[in-house]
Design a protein around this nucleic acid. Sequence first.
DNA 1: GCGACAG
DNA 2: ATCTTGTCGC
Length: 332
Amino acid sequence: MGIRIVNRVESLLCPRIPNLPWELGELLKQIPAGCVTTFGDLAEALGDLTAARWIAQELGSHPIGPWYRVVKRTGELAGTDSDRMALQRDMLAAEGLNFNDDGRIDLADCRWCDFTCPAPLRQLAAWQSELAVRADGTTEVAIPPLIGGLDVSYVSDNQAVAAYVEIDVASGATVFSATHHAEIGFPYLTGYLTFRELPIHLALIEQVRQEKPLAKVILVDGAGQLHPRRSGIAVGVGVVADCVTIGVAKHRLCGRAVSGDPEPLLELNGAVLGQSLIGTTSRKPLQISPGHGLSVASAVACVRAVWKHGRTPIPIREADALSRRVAKAAKA
DNA sequence: GCGACAG
DNA sequence: ATCTTGTCGC
């Protein structure tokens, strides 16, 4: 049997990240005069209904214009700016659209959603699923002498600073740190944080590797395998950069708490993918789940080893403080 | 009315 | 995540 290793490396690279605002603009141009569409219809054309919230924010942050043919699923106009809503109403009325007494449009005869679009989010989700298959969540890993931390802070909506720190487990001291400042090309969408923050994380990791090897285990601010497609940001960092990662999230994206009262295991579709942990000083739990290269139990042991006090483990706290400090300095 | 989803 | 006044707790 022949050995084929041709695309092994290539397949691990990040996919081309689409320009989502541009794709949205292309969709708006397609809506015919005299028709309207909904935020959800646009989101489905982009490939995922969950993008509807982002679309509403994105369009709502612009003055009325190319998006005046977009309304809510109920037929109401979106937003709270009454002047702008009156203007939108006039523009739609000028195209022959009728409003009911309650101010809504009857979508039955003017809703249009026959978009032509490559559905970029569907492709990104498929890539995340491929990544999840490569993620290891079973290896038992001993607590290493050094544990790393990764976090990102924002200078502006499209500019960020990533920070990497290394903590000596025995003393809790920071023994190494580095930062990387870069443009961010993708918005925050629930479930798609990977495409917003993975590139800057990878750039920082590459920079660090020029200088020294990474810590054996790295905590990443965000979800691990406890993700709708088992592919949170910590999975992306671990599989693509080939390192051991643990997702440390302040909020639970998905999954159900099972067995274990104060610190329940977290399950998704019948698989245990994480655990809620409460520190000694804090009352709000953190959601721990493996990114890549270790089991839930090993991930929990590593986090506990660097979480003596405070709201969050030392590597995450230090990476957060450092990235925030550098991002703030970059503003001034 | 309920539910609400990393950063 | 970031934007921000007042407020609560150690």
